[in-house]
Amino acid sequence: MKKVNVKKMVLLAVLISQALVLSIIESWIPLPMPVPVPGIKLGLANIVSIIVIVYFGYREALAVVLIRCLLTSFFSGGITVFLFSIAGGILSTIVMSFLYKKFSNVFSIIGISISGAVMHNMGQIVMAVIVMKDIAVLGYLPVLVIAGIVTGLLVGIAANLLIKGLEKSKMTL
């Protein structure tokens, strides 16, 4: 029988529920948007994705994102929202894991978070093009890239502080 790592399973479950709570909380925060563009979110749940990438790895991060998107769409949204968040979530998790593993010397956690946020928005736009069957939706991309830089920066700063705190507390995940 395959040995189940109970500690890891519990920790990941707790992290998923935290990601879930964060994505519900962020839907209460009104974002100041100069131009109304669909798909702009703070992406607080990305803090959890970054933590999982740093402390566990890309497989665990993908699992966390998948389950989080599934559960979020149960609470709010539905199938269309699920398609958008899963496209963005998977793309951003793959890119962030890759950058963290191979290019940690070039990018800090903040840079990785920014690229994750931008990739998240790009994934959503690609999904929007598929769903709407209309290439005109790509016109939203530049604004979404700029939004991703801002939200990725904020999320990256938060994740960075969290990692520093975890290191200081000598807590092992």
Binding site: I110, G111, I114, P142, N160
Partner: peptide, 22 residues
């Protein structure tokens, strides 16, 4: 805290986005 790659990344993304909007 920030590394060189971060700044280059943000600069490239900003240039691309602003060019596209213009």
């Amino acid at each position: 805290m920030l590394k060189k790659g971060d700044i280059i990344l943000v600069a490239l993304l900003l240039v691309a986005a602003v060019t596209a909007i213009a």
